[in-house]
C-alpha cells in the first residue's frame, strides 16, 4: 500500500540542530520503531512526518510524493498522541467520527465506519460514553480507532503507552501489533523503551543526539550493534574501556582478541555471554551480588583489577555470593572511534 521515505531530513530550532540530515526508508506494511533517549530527536522526527513541524531541509516522501510542506490536515498520516488527546466534550463515537464528518460523509456511513473501528479495538459497547468515563487503556484504544477509521497511509504513534502500567502496556502493544499486521498499515512508533521496541518492531531505528545511529531488525540491533551508543542503549552490556597491545586486551582476567593497532579501545560484552567457572579463593572475580529474576540470575562479580562483570546465567548454575569464579567470554565486540573494529561471534 504505502511507503515512507525520508531524504536528508533535518531540523534546526534556532541555532540548535534537533535533527542532523538523516535518511530512512520504511517499506509498505512495515512497523518501524524510533528508539532513543529523551532529546534524541525521535519525537521531532515523528512530528515532521505528521506535519506538526516543518523540516529545515529534506524531503518526506509518502508513496513517492513529497509532503514536507503539506499541513497535517492534508497529509495521509494519522497520529496517536502520548496523552491520547481525545476531545473531552465529544462522545467516543463523536471522537472517532469527527474526521469522517469533516470529510463530508453521510451519517449512516459514518456510523458504520465508527462501529467497525470500535469493534477493531474491542470497544463496541462504549460508543456513547465520554472519554472521562473510560480507563487509560480504553482511551488509548479510542485514540487508535480514531486514527484507523480514516484509513491513513501511515500510522504514527508517539509513545502511546507511556502513561499506562506495565501489564496494560504489554497487552495493548500486542493488540496494536496484531491490528497493524491485519491491516498491513505502514507504522512509525516512537518509544524510549527498548523492550517495547524489541517486541513490536519489524525494524528499529536507534536515535541519539539528532542522528540515526543504526537501523536494523531487533535481532541485528541486539547482536550486532554498530556503535557504542547502540551497544550500551539496547539491553544490558559490559562496556569496558581498555588499551590494546599486540592485538589483544586484558580486562578482569580475561584476554580479548583485538587484531588492530595499539591504543585505546572499547570492549562490549553481553552479560549472557559471560560464564563463571569456579576457581580458588583470591583468583578470578569475586561475586558481590546475585539477583534472582526467576528464570535467570543476574550476577555482579569484581575482578582483581577492579573491573566489574555483569553476568547473566540460568538459575540452576551454582554460584554463591562471596565466592571466586573465573569469567570466560564467548562473544565480544571491539569499538574504536565509535566504530566496530573487531567482532568475535562463534555462532
Amino acid at each position: 500500500m504505502s511507503t515512507l521515505e525520508l531524504e536528508n531530513v533535518s531540523k534546526q530550532f534556532g541555532t540548535m540542530a534537533a535533527l542532523e540530515p538523516l535518511a530512512l526508508r520504511i517499506a509498505d506494511g512495515e512497523l518501524v520503531c524510533l528508539l532513543g533517549p529523551s532529546g534524541s530527536g525521535k519525537s521531532t522526527l515523528l512530528r515532521i512526518i505528521g506535519g506538526f513541524e516543518m523540516p529545515t531541509g529534506g524531503k518526506v516522501l509518502i508513496d513517492g510524493a513529497d509532503v514536507a510542506r503539506t499541513p497535517p490536515e492534508k497529509r495521509p498520516t494519522a497520529m496517536v498522541f502520548q496523552s491520547h488527546a481525545l476531545w473531552g466534550h465529544m462522545t467516543v463515537e463523536g471522537n472517532i467520527g469527527f474526521g469522517l464528518k469533516l470529510r463530508g460523509l453521510k451519517k449512516p456511513e459514518i456510523a458504520a465506519k465508527v462501529d467497525a473501528a470500535l469493534r477493531l479495538v474491542g470497544l463496541a459497547e462504549y460508543g456513547k460514553r465520554h472519554p472521562a468515563q473510560l480507563s487509560g487503556g480504553q482511551r488509548q484504544r479510542v485514540a487508535i480507532a480514531r486514527c484507523l477509521v480514516l484509513e491513513p497511509k501511515i500510522l504514527l504513534m508517539d509513545e502511546p503507552f507511556a502513561s499506562l502500567d506495565q501489564h496494560l502496556r504489554d497487552r495493548l502493544r500486542e493488540e496494536v501489533r496484531q491490528i497493524q499486521r491485519k491491516l498491513g498499515i505502514t507504522t512509525v512508533f516512537v518509544t524510549h523503551g527498548q523492550d517495547e521496541a524489541l517486541s513490536i518492531a519489524d525494524r528499529i531505528a536507534v536515535m541519539s543526539m539528532g542522528r540515526i545511529e543504526q537501523v536494523g531488525t531487533p535481532a541485528e540491533i541486539y547482536t550486532h550493534p554498530q556503535t557504542p551508543f547502540v551497544a550500551g542503549f539496547i539491553g544490558d552490556m559490559n562496556m569496558m574501556k581498555t588499551t590494546v597491545q599486540g592485538g589483544a586486551a586484558l580486562i578482569g582476567g580475561v584476554r580479548f582478541d583485538a587484531p588492530m593497532a595499539d591504543g585505546e579501545a572499547l570492549i562490549a560484552v553481553r552479560p549472557e555471554d559471560v560464564t563463571l567457572m569456579p576457581s580458588r579463593d583470591g583468583e578470578g572475580a569475586r561475586v558481590r551480588r546475585i539477583v534472582n529474576y526467576g528464570a535467570v540470575l543476574k550476577i555482579e562479580a569484581e575482578a582483581a583489577d577492579g573491573a566489574v562483570w555483569k553476568v547473566q546465567t540460568l538459575k540452576d548454575v551454582p554460584v554463591t555470593e562471596g565466592g571466586f569464579y573465573r569469567p570466560t567470554v564467548s562473544r565480544h565486540i571491539v569499538f574504536r572511534d565509535d566504530r566496530v573494529v573487531h567482532r568475535v561471534d562463534p555462532t
Partner: peptide, 27 residues
C-alpha cells in the same frame, strides 16, 4: 486547552478555523 487536542484535530483533517470551532472553543 491542550495543544495535543488541537493537533489531533488538525491530524484528522480540521482546518485552523475548524479546530477552533470544534475543539478549542467547546473546551
Amino acid at each position: 486547552v491542550s495543544r495535543e487536542m488541537e493537533e489531533a484535530a488538525r491530524d484528522v483533517g480540521a482546518s485552523a478555523w475548524q479546530v477552533f470551532r470544534y475543539v478549542t472553543l467547546p473546551q
